[in-house]
Nucleic acid binder design. Structure first.
Lengths: 94, 94
DNA sequence: GCCTCTTATCGAAAATTATCGATAAATTCG
DNA sequence: CGAATTTATCGATAATTTTCGATAAGAGGC
């Protein structure tokens, strides 16, 4: 069951997706089929750790990613429910 | 048949949707079932005409809207194909 | 407790975007 | 042609976002 998203959330999600690095991040996590941690993404992108952390925060604030702390690392994974809800919203214009 | 959208276009579309006024614009056009012109939207939003024109440009540059000049007015309508393509892209993460 | 590993936060600078008023451009009407 | 209507563009300013280095915070291992 995917949640109904209000306009504020749609705006936040759209903003979060409106950056090429953040698109690369979600794409990479999808390809991993599972999860990635911050350091993996720092290695992948040519950005500092603090910048990557910032991008991950945008994505988790928009609930596109779920952050799960495990020991000293944080596992980031896709929140498929929110992607589904967002897709549904977009389809209303189609 | 909806087009396949590359990352650059996805980024542009997401950016275009990442603003509450632009979301209001597409929603209003959808409700009209047809099209709206710039002046209609100026009346609807509390923004200057030049700002509305700017927002409409973002949306048409992202190809979410089709601008069709008719006499001295411009008809803005939804580009359903692009919405469909965008929805399809999002669904890949679901 | 101390050292290491991993991520988050802070503060500042640079880059981008939003907003406006003024003005130009395109078109219709008289 | 001149006036009116509608939209686009320009230039400037304000607001937001991105980026970084430095540093803090949390957790595991010795």
């Amino acid at each position: 069951m995917n949640a109904l998203l209000d306009f504020k959330k749609i705006e936040k999600i759209s903003k979060a997706l409106g950056d090429c690095y953040r698109l690369k991040i979600i794409e990479a996590i999808r390809k991993e089929q599972d999860w990635m941690q911050c350091g993996d993404i720092v290695d992948m992108l040519r950005l500092s750790q603090s910048t990557v952390s910032h991008h991950l925060k945008q994505l988790t604030d928009a609930e596109l990613l779920i952050a799960e702390r495990d020991g000293r690392k944080t596992r980031y994974m896709l929140n498929k429910d929110v992607f589904a809800g967002f897709a549904k919203f977009i389809q209303a214009y189609d």
